[in-house]
Amino acid sequence: MDVRADPTRQLVRLRGRSYVAFVFSPVVPIVEWLSEIDTTLARSPGYFVGKPIVLDLASVDLSASAISHLVGSLDERGIRVLGIEGVDESRLAANMPPLLTGGRACVITRNEPAHRAEEPKEEPKPKPTSLLLDSPVRSGQSIVFTEGDVTVLGSVGSGAEIVAGGSIHIYGTLRGRAMAGVNGNSAARIYCQKIEAELLAIDGYYQTAEEIDPSLRNRPAQAWLQGDTMKITPLN
């Protein structure tokens, strides 16, 4: 009889648990694929930190040493490979991550803390909020500036169009189309020295040349929104 009695007998308990892993599927040339990874890392460093990563080698044919080199290259980038799939087991050396089978595809839901994504952002340069054009806008030209006001020192030809997030100021004759407040800015207005417009629009409300009061023609005018109606009035 065995006299040695285990003081406490440890029971090895095995439990199953599933995790969602990122699957990398390298493609040849591996160097370019790695530079794609680098681009992702440059955009959001630490994106793969602490994430389980699986390497799917089904679409490439790599030798044992090439696989080893690839795993090493990922390791240098701080990406630790949990397992490898889609390759013959004989290609995997003992010191390499184990072969995995039976994976099922699923949707990756990102639940990173919100603040982390914002941290690496640099202070963005303040974008210009107005656009100045010091030559006439010719027929067929389309000026789109959704960030703010557009000012034209000259005329806007028939068949030309100006699209602005803010107001539109034309120091000349408006013969083409002017669309102001395109981002939903109902306070935007259109000003011009002479109105012969083909179409005026503010925040989606528009009037065509036919609807514009003929008595306004050739006069300085402004257009603005009063509730749901566009008003066009002379400026002098």
Binding site: S135, R138, S139, G140, Q141, G157, A160
Partner: peptide, 16 residues
Amino acid sequence: EVSSVRDSDRIIGMLD
């Protein structure tokens, strides 16, 4: 005439 003038305006834009 208006059609010719508008087409000329377009061409001037392209020249620029």
